[in-house]
Nucleic acid binder design. Structure first.
Lengths: 347, 347
DNA sequence: ATTTAGCACTCGAACTCTCTGAGTGCTAAG
DNA sequence: CTTAGCACTCAGAGAGTTCGAGTGCTAAAT
């Protein structure tokens, strides 16, 4: 059922006011507003109906009203004035400071940045990299039992590890193994790099003492590329909001964010543009009084990550979602400039 | 002036009790204790003198006493019963889960671990690596304008970066540059790798398009090796203590720890075994009601890092310092086994 | 000379009581 | 349908009270 225009107006004004003050809003306050030229009594009647419909709640029998989760949902979906997506000046200037970093660190720093920018807590998830493949292997001999394995991925990440072999490995063996690895495993989707493939490698290159550690590392690497890391930043910011003055609640929330951040963040498929979760929509119990705003960012065409803001349900959804979306766009650009290879860049 | 034996006993019992309960301790409570067979009146007199000497404080005119910072200091220095350094079972089992990681991550995870183990917040600092040098360079061509620089340090860390050159670089140029780099810059103390050295490299290898990005990266790398990273873990744990139920104080502390962790941690030279800082001894104002316990860990003979526990001044110094010291020892061993090259291992 | 018992005194914490005022719901007039 | 008016509700602030843990002092006991 659609709301009358007046009801919408009242609801919108009430939510905006509550977001500003964190105090229950009464009929008089609303009646005094610019756009609402009705008496407090009229507004009371409307509010009473809005409450029946489930958009508002009372904290106790005789006090102003507070938006319910359903009310916030409606506000976010239909009522709130979308801020125009311009003036990204603050964000872009800030983003400049992120230049020249490894992907994981970059994402972590980006989270920290948006946290200081918005004064909310943030979660940042590194991208799911399943669609990438390995571009190149290199084996570097440090001494005859110490080697560094270097793997360059199609997504432009370089990973390495130092390994020790039980027995010395000759230069020829090393080079052969490296050649075979490059021949057999590059340009393959990661899920096709299985133990069986390594049997093939072993047959082609001869089973040197290097093969086992290399296979082990590559398996670990694939696991790492497939898994996503979550960084939480600015948790202490939440303590500044009156809704978290109850230390117990705050602790539960912060502990949850620190330990189970992974289950909190939606997968990138769930997000289209900017996605907002209000209170219980976040799923977990410690988050039931908390809202989150998520946006996606791209790693070229290979993968996508998620970055989000966490705060009380009373948050400035309009401003924050606009800000986050701008930020994510800036991040996209930054990544394509600094991390990715030229091939993925648009000329 | 020395304290009488009875005074010591009383002070020690009071502090232990206060650590347990977080409530001011009165004379009756102490009189009821096993070792203190004096009447409450006697104990009151003694307490009154201890207060005059500055070891105790009253929260208000008529309430039990609370240890002052000076009191804690005395407790830590002389009174507390050192826990025996055995039964490292919990720690060592836990440490097993850390195997096989890059140094930075390992330290970070170690911090997280000791935080869950102790239920306090922790700070962990990666080691100062000035005494290391570069063992080997490698330049890997991905395509004719894309290269990966790999640097292996004497301390067993492998660092890399992908760079793009403006102009194509031939295979011969690349190999020559790599050779010259290995000839001129390896085994040198890091501070001797200056821009002037790179002029020499340039003259020997010819100024290819690769030289500039390589020089830039190496400069960055040296900066990175010289600088220390600080990881804070388990900040939310602090909210569980009654002394941080005041959200404002808690927020200040957490924000300080998140942002200025670096200035908080003492340098490794200041620490000998385990070092305890009580309240204002930490320097910073937000930390004036907080105590910290630090221990050192070694990266072979090359460098040392610091790991520490952060909590209210009322913390179980005896148990925690023993636990931390055990943990640091375990960490030493783990590092020598997994990160370092065999050369640094003791056979 | 200590130690202890006894007692008056202090003062925060907790509890009750009251008052206030913002806000509501209802009714009746506009 | 809107609005003015009014009785009603109830959380929160403030004042007053009680309670009890704890102190400091004094005088008796050891």
């Amino acid at each position: 059922m659609e709301l009358s225009e007046r009801k919408s107006k009242i609801l919108k004004a009430l939510i905006a006011e509550y977001i500003r003050t964190a105090e229950p809003v009464g009929s008089k306050t609303l009646a005094a507003m610019e756009d609402l030229h009705y008496s407090s009594a009229t507004i009371r009647n409307e509010m009473s109906e809005l409450e029946e419909m489930g958009y508002l709640e009372k904290t106790h029998t005789s006090s102003g009203r507070v938006p319910s989760h359903k009310g916030y949902r409606l506000y976010v979906d239909e009522l709130m004035t979308q801020e125009t997506d311009q003036d990204a000046s603050a964000e872009t200037t800030a983003l400049m400071s992120l230049k020249e970093r490894e992907l994981d660190r970059l994402i972590q720093e980006a989270g920290r940045l948006i946290s200081t920018l918005t004064n909310y807590a943030t979660v940042a998830v590194t991208p799911h990299m399943t669609r990438t493949s390995i571009r190149q292997f290199e084996l570097i001999a440090v001494d005859d039992t110490t080697f560094v394995i270097v793997v360059v991925t199609e997504s432009g990440q370089v990973k390495n590890k130092m390994v020790h072999t039980g027995a010395p490995v000759s230069k020829e063996e090393t080079e052969l193994l490296c050649y075979v690895l490059n021949q057999t495993l590059t340009a393959l989707p990661l899920e096709q790099i299985t133990p069986e493939r390594f049997d093939i490698v072993g047959r082609a290159a001869g089973v040197s003492a290097l093969l086992a550690p290399v296979a082990e590392y590559i398996a670990e690497l694939i696991r790492e590329l497939g898994s996503q890391k979550v960084f939480v930043q600015g948790g202490s910011k939440l303590l500044g909001f009156p809704e978290y003055h109850d230390t117990k609640k705050a602790q539960k929330l912060l502990a949850y964010m620190a330990d189970d951040a992974k289950s909190l963040v939606p997968t990138e498929q769930e997000i289209d543009g900017v996605k907002i979760f209000i209170g219980p929509e976040n799923g977990a119990d410690p988050m039931s009084e908390t809202s989150t705003i998520y946006a996606k960012y791209d790693i070229g065409t290979i993968g996508q990550g998620v970055i989000g803001i966490v705060g009380p349900t009373r948050m400035d959804y309009a401003a924050l979602s606009a800000q986050l979306s701008r930020f994510a766009k800036g991040l996209n650009q930054l990544i394509s400039e600094t991390i990715l290879d030229d091939r993925d860049k648009k000329k």
